[in-house]
Computed example of a mutant assay.
Amino acid sequence: MELREIQIFLALAEELHFGRTAERLHVTPARVSQVIKKQERAIGAELFKRTSRNVQLTPVGEQLRDGLGAGYRQIQEALAAAATAGREITGEIRVGYSAAWCGNLVVAAADIFRSRHPDCVVHIQDSQLHDPLGPLRDGSRDLHLIELPIDEPDIVNGPVLFSEPRALVVPAGHPFAERETVSLEDLAEAPMITVTGQPEYLLDLHYPHRTPKGRPIPRGPSTTAWQEVLALVGAGKGVSPTSARAAHYYSRPDIAYVPFSDAPPVEYGLLWPARGNTPKVRAFVSTVVETAALQRARPVPDERP
């Protein structure tokens, strides 16, 4: 039984008049009669006793009315609550991202979000590598799509949205550039260019001090911006780990991207301040999760520099 058919039955059970029911629901009396006859055939019993003067519920009809009424009211209440929540999502929401491929996901999700919540303006900005959490804490960002893990008491971690294999950015003339892959042990053979300002545990994960076998990894220059990392690598000052997808977005003639054969993938997810867990933020998080799932389900296009 479809929702509209339930609505017609319950309205007739209340009005006990085909004409008034039709007028109330903006349908014809013939449509009301057609629906009731269909329901009676499906159930195998009369729901209403009809005479030229009145309409009355049968015992079976009363039982159906009582059973359907509570469920129908719950559906109506749920729809009303959803509509109210949707109307509350107004104003603006500010979303940051740490890498171009994260920005692509945020932009796609923002398009869907705007279509659902046209009264809410979405502002999208890239974030600085050296202070990824500062904008969340000072209120200039509501959400941030970034590399995980983040372990901060005042920051909420959303689910992992996607992961990317790791690669090593090396100077174009470096011996590593001629290889098909590198290993984590190879990090002991070249200075590592790092990014400053991030939490120490995040730096240890992405820019370790030792290889898995305990060999020290020499340190090269530190910087605060991704383009400076690439410039330093291109100038031969060292190497730097990153996502393998960076090769499709940041191609330069003086650098090369060599995949790791043994490094764990980089995981990406949304962060937001614990004090900022609002319906608006939750709605955007839900939209990003949905969009990421849709993108995983579609074939990946051939990304070329």
Rank of each mutant, 00 (worst) to 15 (best):
N104C: 10
V122Y: 04
V160L: 11
V169W: 08
E200M: 06
Q76C: 04
G103F: 07
S163T: 14
P132K: 01
P153A: 05
A177R: 06
E189G: 13
I112R: 13
T194A: 10
R114N: 12
R210S: 08
H174Y: 08
P191V: 05
G158P: 04
S127Y: 02
A100Y: 06
N104A: 13
A99N: 03
N157L: 15
F113Y: 14
D131V: 00
S115T: 06
R114T: 13
R87Q: 14
Y72K: 04
Y72N: 03
P199V: 06
P159C: 07
L184D: 06
P118N: 14
I155S: 06
S140F: 07
A177F: 11
S115N: 09
P153V: 04
L143E: 01
S127I: 10
E77Y: 10
G69E: 11
P132L: 06
F176E: 09
R94C: 02
E152N: 07
G91R: 03
S98M: 09
L133S: 01
L145E: 00
Y72R: 08
I146P: 00
D131C: 00
A190W: 05
L187E: 03
A83N: 07
E178N: 03
T90I: 03
A172F: 12
R73E: 08
H174T: 04
T181Q: 15
Y207V: 06
P171V: 11
G134E: 09
G197P: 04
D111C: 14
R73N: 03
V122M: 11
H144A: 08
L187K: 02
Q128N: 11
V170P: 03
I146V: 15
